[in-house]
Computed example of a mutant assay.
Amino acid sequence: MALHRDIFWVGRQLAVTGAGIQAVDQRLRGVLDIEIARLWDDDLVQGRRAKPGVNTVDFDKALTVARERFPQEPTADPIVAQLAALGVVAAPVESPVLPALQLRVEGRLARFLPQWRIRR
Rank of each mutant, 00 (worst) to 15 (best):
residue 59 F to T: 01
residue 46 Q to F: 07
residue 73 E to V: 15
residue 54 V to M: 12
residue 83 L to R: 08
residue 57 V to R: 13
residue 47 G to H: 14
residue 64 T to V: 13
residue 57 V to W: 07
residue 72 Q to L: 13
residue 68 E to M: 15
residue 51 K to W: 09
residue 48 R to K: 15
residue 49 R to P: 02
residue 63 L to M: 12
residue 71 P to Y: 03
residue 59 F to A: 06
residue 47 G to A: 13
residue 52 P to T: 08
residue 75 T to G: 08
residue 80 V to E: 10
residue 60 D to G: 06
residue 52 P to Y: 06
residue 79 I to L: 10
residue 50 A to Q: 12
residue 65 V to I: 15
residue 77 D to V: 06
residue 66 A to Y: 03
residue 48 R to D: 01
residue 54 V to P: 01
residue 53 G to K: 13
residue 69 R to M: 13
residue 74 P to M: 13
residue 78 P to C: 04
residue 62 A to M: 03
residue 70 F to V: 04
residue 57 V to S: 10
residue 72 Q to V: 07
residue 75 T to F: 02
residue 66 A to K: 07
residue 50 A to R: 12
residue 54 V to T: 05
residue 53 G to N: 11
residue 60 D to Q: 12
residue 51 K to L: 14
residue 67 R to C: 00
residue 63 L to G: 00
residue 77 D to P: 04
residue 78 P to G: 03
residue 66 A to T: 05
residue 65 V to F: 09
residue 51 K to S: 11
residue 48 R to W: 03
residue 67 R to I: 07
residue 82 Q to K: 14
residue 61 K to D: 14
residue 53 G to L: 07
residue 49 R to D: 02
residue 78 P to T: 07
residue 48 R to V: 15
residue 52 P to C: 04
residue 53 G to Q: 10
residue 71 P to W: 00
residue 66 A to V: 02
residue 75 T to E: 05
residue 76 A to L: 08
residue 82 Q to I: 11
residue 62 A to P: 01
residue 63 L to Y: 04
residue 54 V to E: 06
residue 63 L to K: 07
residue 58 D to L: 11
residue 45 V to N: 01
residue 55 N to E: 14
residue 54 V to K: 01
residue 47 G to M: 11
residue 49 R to G: 01
residue 64 T to C: 12
residue 74 P to S: 10
residue 46 Q to R: 10
residue 75 T to H: 05
residue 62 A to I: 04
residue 57 V to F: 09
residue 59 F to H: 03
residue 70 F to C: 02
residue 52 P to N: 06
residue 57 V to C: 09
residue 62 A to Q: 03
residue 61 K to E: 14
residue 48 R to N: 01
residue 48 R to I: 13
residue 65 V to P: 06
residue 56 T to N: 10
residue 57 V to I: 15
residue 64 T to Q: 15
residue 56 T to L: 11
residue 74 P to C: 07
residue 56 T to H: 10
residue 78 P to F: 00
residue 70 F to I: 06
residue 48 R to G: 02
residue 56 T to I: 13
residue 83 L to C: 06
residue 76 A to S: 07
residue 72 Q to I: 08
residue 79 I to Y: 09
residue 73 E to A: 12
residue 77 D to M: 02
residue 77 D to L: 06
residue 64 T to W: 11
residue 63 L to A: 05
residue 45 V to W: 00
residue 69 R to V: 04
residue 45 V to G: 01
residue 81 A to W: 00
residue 79 I to C: 07
residue 71 P to G: 03
residue 52 P to K: 07
residue 64 T to P: 00
residue 49 R to F: 03
residue 83 L to H: 08
residue 68 E to R: 15
residue 46 Q to E: 09
residue 49 R to A: 15
residue 58 D to N: 14
residue 52 P to Q: 09
residue 80 V to Y: 00
residue 75 T to S: 06
residue 56 T to K: 14
residue 75 T to P: 00
residue 77 D to I: 02
residue 53 G to T: 13
residue 50 A to T: 05
residue 61 K to T: 15
residue 62 A to Y: 05
residue 47 G to R: 15
residue 66 A to L: 07
residue 75 T to M: 09
residue 76 A to K: 08
residue 54 V to L: 04
residue 61 K to W: 08
residue 70 F to R: 02
residue 61 K to A: 14
residue 58 D to T: 13
residue 63 L to N: 06
residue 53 G to P: 05
residue 78 P to D: 02
residue 78 P to R: 00
residue 50 A to E: 12
residue 81 A to R: 09
residue 61 K to Y: 13
residue 46 Q to K: 14
residue 65 V to G: 05
residue 67 R to V: 11
residue 62 A to G: 10
residue 70 F to A: 05
residue 48 R to M: 11
residue 48 R to Y: 06
